[in-house]
Design a protein around this nucleic acid. Sequence first.
DNA 1: CGGGATCCAGCGCGATACTG
DNA 2: CAGTATCGCGCTGGATCCCG
Lengths: 141, 141
Amino acid sequence: MEDGTWKAPSYCTGTDDDVRQWDTREDCEVRQILDRIADKWSLLVIALLDRRTMRFTELRKEIDGVSQRMLTVTLRQLERDGLIKRTVYPVSPPRVDYELTALGNSLQEVTKALVVWTERHQQEISEARTEYDQREILPVS
Amino acid sequence: MEDGTWKAPSYCTGTDDDVRQWDTREDCEVRQILDRIADKWSLLVIALLDRRTMRFTELRKEIDGVSQRMLTVTLRQLERDGLIKRTVYPVSPPRVDYELTALGNSLQEVTKALVVWTERHQQEISEARTEYDQREILPVS
DNA sequence: CGGGATCCAGCGCGATACTG
DNA sequence: CAGTATCGCGCTGGATCCCG
C-alpha cells in the first residue's frame, strides 16, 4: 500500500526500554509470532510442558477437546519455532516425547503470567459482562 | 459429555501459588477469556491504548489491516469485558474516545511482557524455522 | 465521524479412515 | 502409539452499503 520504508520501533532496535510503540503492520514479524502463539492450542501445550516431558497421548488426554490432528499440527509448529523438542524412540509401539527447549521455557514464564492474570481477574470480567449485558436491556432513559 | 463434577484447580481457588495445573477443559472460564484476549486484534488495541486516549479513526489508522467492522467488534468485546472505557461526546460530527480501565491497564502490563519476549526472541525463532525447514529437505541418512 | 446490517470467502478446525 | 490424508463445516473476519 505505502512505500516500504519505515522506522524500526524501539522494541525492535532494543535501544529504548519504553515499549509503547508497537509495529502494527500486518507483515510485522512480531505480529506473526503473536498470532502463532495465540492460536487455539499452543498456549495450553506450552503450559502443560512446564518442567516435564510428556508423551503424545498424555498431552491429548490432558487437553480437553483437542483433536489428534490439531495436536499434531500444533506440536509441529512449536517444534519448528524451536520452542519444544521432539524425541522419537525407535521402539514398538512407538514412543515420542515432548519437552520445552530453553527458548520454550522462557516463553512459558511469560505466558504463565498471562494465565495467572486471567485467573486472578476472571471474577471482575464476569461481573463486567453481566453489568454490560444488563445495561443493554434497560431503556436509554 | 461427562458429569458436571470437577475439582477446581489451584489457580482457581487461589490456595496454591504453583500454577502448574491448568484447567484444560473446553468450558473453563480461563480458556474462554484467553481465547478472547488472544484473538486477532484485541492485543493490539490494548497495547495502543497504553496510557492514552484514542479515537476510533485514530486506532484504525494505527492498526494496519483492521477493517472497520472488526475494530468495532473488538472494541465492543473489550468494553463488555470491562477492559476499556468508551466515551461518546454528543457533538457533530460524533466523537468517541477509548481508554483503558484499571483492569485493562493491569492486563496491558502482562501482554507487554509477551510482546517484549517476542521482540527479543524473534531472531531465534526465525533461525529455528530455517533450520527446521532445511532438515525437512535432507535425506533421513 | 463512528458506527450498524448484511453478505460471503477463507481457513481453522473437527471427524473419520488408514498406516508403520 | 503416534501419527498422515482427506473431506467438509462453522465461524472469524473482510467488503460493501447505509445511517444519525
